[in-house]
């Protein structure tokens, strides 16, 4: 955290090396959030670039008193994800009919490709989780991602989502239960 604050200060003074270090430290976190929310690698990559371009421009406006840098960075990312979600709403409605026809085939393919390898198991679970997240409503999806995949505490999530802590808790709880039900219907057994 302190390192982030120092790097941000150096960045604002125009130190390119500090900016590069800041990007390297947080690129994976930003990309994961984008990928888990959109479920699309290309969109996640484009959005990640967009996030850091915006951060680069607005970094002087960041006040450490308002919260830690990762929380602020997550807020910027989340705002861009909401914009992206609204932009692509029409595309998703037209694609949903095709998804229903192809989804069972993908599921069968994955179930036959099971291997004892740990990496493959993680990859398979990651893909199944992605399918389940895609079926969650955006409010519940982002709450679960921020809590269980990004590891944010309730206070940080409240800051990012700009909602009361009771709402945060409620969304996380409902999101977990709903996701577990979806995965159970998909045939994914809990550990």
């Amino acid at each position: 955290m302190e390192q982030d604050a120092q790097l941000v200060q150096l960045c604002v003074r125009g130190d390119g090396a500090s900016w590069e270090e800041l990007v390297r430290r947080h690129a994976r976190r930003v990309h994961n959030l984008c990928y888990r929310f959109t479920g699309n690698s290309t969109a996640a990559e484009d959005l990640s670039q967009e996030v850091f371009l915006r951060v680069f421009r607005t970094l002087p406006s960041y006040q450490p008193a308002q919260g830690a840098f990762p929380t602020w960075l997550t807020s910027v990312t989340r705002n861009l994800l909401v914009d992206h979600y609204r932009r692509t709403r029409r595309d998703r409605l037209t694609d949903s009919i095709d998804d229903e026809a192809t989804a069972p085939q993908i599921k069968d393919k994955r179930s036959t490709a099971r291997t004892p390898d740990k990496l493959a198991e993680d990859s398979e679970l990651s893909a199944q989780l992605q399918d389940g997240l895609a079926k969650l409503s955006p409010d519940l999806r982002e709450a679960v991602i921020l809590r269980d995949l990004q590891g944010l505490d309730y206070g940080a999530i409240r800051t990012v989502l700009q909602v009361p802590e009771g709402t945060v808790k409620s969304r996380i709880n409902r999101g977990r239960i709903e996701l577990a039900r979806i995965l159970n219907e998909m045939g994914v057994r809990p550990a």
């Binding site: 690129a27 976190r29 670039q49 977990r176 577990a180 550990a191």
Partner: peptide
């Protein structure tokens, strides 16, 4: 739900695309 939460905490983060940092 407890099984799901435990497994989500164990899932390693997705590897970002090669060259993403350099592009940024």
């Amino acid at each position: 739900v407890s099984g799901l939460v435990a497994r989500m905490h164990q899932i390693p983060p997705v590897q970002e695309p090669a060259g993403l940092v350099e592009t940024i």
